[in-house]
C-alpha cells in the first residue's frame, strides 16, 4: 500500500507555538496508525527542532518557522526550516551537551534527542541564511 500525504505550515517564532507544532504533526501522522511511543518520539523530535529555530535561529518572534511533513507509505519525513542566523559549525552544534545558550540553561541535547527518536536526521545550514532540519521515521518499525 503506497499512500502519500503532504502538509506545510508556517507560524511565528513564539515559544507558545512549540506545543502547537508538535500536536499538529502528531495529528497529521495519526493516519499511519503509529504506537503511542512512536507518536511521543515524533512529538519530542519536532519540539526540539522547532525550539532550536525559535531560540537559536531567530531573535524576533514575528519571524516565521516553516514546518512540513510528507507521509510516503510507512515513512514520515518532517522538515523544520528557518531563515535565521544559521549554524556556523553543524558538527559542533550536534555534539551532545554543546550549547551556545548556557545562560538559558539549554541542556545541549536537542540534536541528540532528534537523533535518538527519529531514524534519520539531516541538518543543512548557511550562516545568515537559515537552517533546515529534515527528519525521517519509519512507522511500525519498532521492536516490542
Amino acid at each position: 500500500m503506497q499512500s502519500k500525504n503532504e502538509m506545510r505550515m508556517w507560524f511565528d517564532a513564539r515559544s507558545v507555538n512549540e506545543g502547537f507544532a508538535r500536536v499538529a504533526v502528531a495529528s497529521f501522522v495519526a493516519e499511519m496508525n503509529p504506537t503511542l511511543d512512536e507518536i511521543s518520539d515524533i512529538k519530542t523530535a519536532v519540539s526540539e527542532a522547532v525550539t532550536n529555530a525559535i531560540i537559536h535561529g531567530y531573535e524576533r518572534p514575528e519571524d516565521k518557522v516553516l514546518l512540513s511533513c510528507v507521509i510516503e507509505g510507512d515513512t514520515v519525513e518532517i522538515a523544520v526550516e528557518d531563515t535565521g542566523k544559521g549554524i556556523p559549525d553543524i558538527e559542533k552544534a550536534m555534539e551532545p551537551f554543546y550549547t551556545t545558550r548556557p545562560e538559558l540553561e539549554r541542556s545541549g541535547m536537542g540534536f541528540s534527542f532528534m537523533e535518538a527518536f527519529m531514524d534519520e536526521v539531516q541538518v543543512s545550514s548557511a550562516v545568515g541564511k537559515g537552517t533546515s532540519v529534515r527528519m525521517r521515521k519509519k512507522i511500525g518499525a519498532q521492536e516490542g
Partner: peptide
C-alpha cells in the same frame, strides 16, 4: 505527559 530537552535543562540546572 510530555517533556523535551528543555525540561532536562531545568532539572540539571
Amino acid at each position: 505527559e510530555f517533556m523535551d530537552s528543555s525540561g532536562i535543562g531545568v532539572i540539571i540546572g
